[in-house]
Simulated scan of single mutants.
Amino acid sequence: MSAVVTGDVVVSASGLQSIGSPSLWGLTIAAVILLLAMDFLITRNPHRVSMREAVGWSIFYIALPLAFGVYIWFAYGSTQGVEYLTGYLVEKSLSVDNLFVFMLLLSAFAVPVELQQRVLLYGIVGALVLRGVFIAVGAAALSAFDWAFLLFGAILLVTAVKIFKDALAGGEQTTEVSDMRSVRLLQRLMPVTDDYRGARLLVRDEGRRALTPMALVVVAIFGTDVVFAIDSIPAVYGITEDPYLVFVTNAAALLGLRALYFVLQGAVRNLPHLNYGLAFILAFIGVKLALHWAHDQWPVVPEIPTLASLGVIVGTLATVTLTSFYATRRSAQRVG
């Protein structure tokens, strides 16, 4: 696809504007690969992750995207800066919700504590690849079909309703590993060992090749990555149509997920109202996408500014956090 560079903005042949010049794309992808390689080196020797280690890496993976946001703001303008920050907050919020499913999967497969961060890292790599594909498809759809905005909005509204219903039903997501087709297929194609063999996915057992439970949990994580991508990509496209910002906000939210998992392993269970907030955020962005499509068709229809979206998202997250702490404290006082 050919592209024309106008100032700091790249205009592709499809008409989409992006700050992502070829050099910026190259540097960003190289940085992501470097950070992933560093994480693989860290997890090369399986070990139990201490809270101090998890907090340290979490701070690093939050400070790095925020510092990059400052660069985006001053290099490309406040509009792109606000879009980046808003998109990052949305993706980070969704990634926190994803931790519920990760916890269930790691528990269902009885993954040893020392191997959990390697499983999470495999999941992050799979998510980055899948979301790269979804981003490309989404960019092509938005540039070719105006009604793609309505489709993305509908996906988010349906997802919001599902999350809200799950929250009303008890607030916990459930994952039946035995119902995952990918896992059942693997078990039919190849034998599976009864125990973990370190971080190995494939071993020779009694003279034949066999998968380990590690391979099954990785496949299960990859399967959930697909679902997460379907939710997250339309959500961030509701904030910005810039494919580069969509990718970099997803990458920034995912890269710190390994360490954040161990920090929030207990904390997320103390946020009973989180899913209500996420449902509202997804529904809000779905409406924003629909209004954007309507504004293109009928200019009299108002749009929701990105800065207003940022305020709604921050306000919603702050509200559900405070109400969750209050509800948890009230519950503890009743039990006590």
Rank of each mutant, 00 (worst) to 15 (best):
M1D: 08
M1F: 11
V4P: 04
T6G: 06
V11M: 04
S12I: 09
G26L: 13
G26E: 03
G26N: 05
G26T: 12
V32K: 10
V32N: 09
I33F: 06
A37F: 14
M38C: 10
F40M: 12
P46H: 00
R48W: 07
S50L: 10
S50C: 10
M51K: 14
M51Q: 15
R52G: 14
R52F: 13
E53S: 14
G56Y: 00
L64V: 02
P65S: 04
F68I: 02
G69T: 00
V70H: 01
V70K: 00
V70T: 07
F74A: 03
G77T: 10
S78W: 07
T86C: 08
G87N: 03
E91D: 10
E91W: 01
S95P: 05
L99D: 05
F100N: 02
V101C: 05
F102H: 05
L105I: 11
L105M: 11
L115M: 10
I124D: 11
R131Q: 06
G138D: 10
A139K: 11
A140W: 15
A141S: 15
L142Y: 14
L142R: 14
S143H: 09
F149E: 14
L150N: 15
L150Y: 15
A154I: 09
L157T: 11
V158C: 05
A160Q: 02
V161H: 07
I163P: 04
F164Y: 10
T174V: 06
T175A: 08
T175C: 02
V177Q: 00
R181G: 08
R184C: 02
Y196P: 06
R197F: 12
R204W: 12
D205I: 05
R208K: 12
R209L: 15
R209T: 14
P213R: 03
V218H: 07
V219S: 10
V219A: 13
A220N: 02
T224P: 01
V227Y: 01
I230A: 08
D231Q: 05
P234K: 04
Y237M: 04
Y237D: 02
I239T: 09
L245H: 06
V246P: 10
T249I: 07
N250K: 12
L257Y: 05
V263F: 00
V263N: 01
L264A: 11
A267C: 03
P272F: 04
H273N: 10
L274R: 03
G277E: 08
L282H: 01
I285H: 07
L289M: 15
L289D: 07
L291I: 04
Q297F: 14
I304H: 09
I304E: 11
P305A: 07
L317S: 05
T319M: 09
L322N: 01
Y326P: 00
T328G: 15
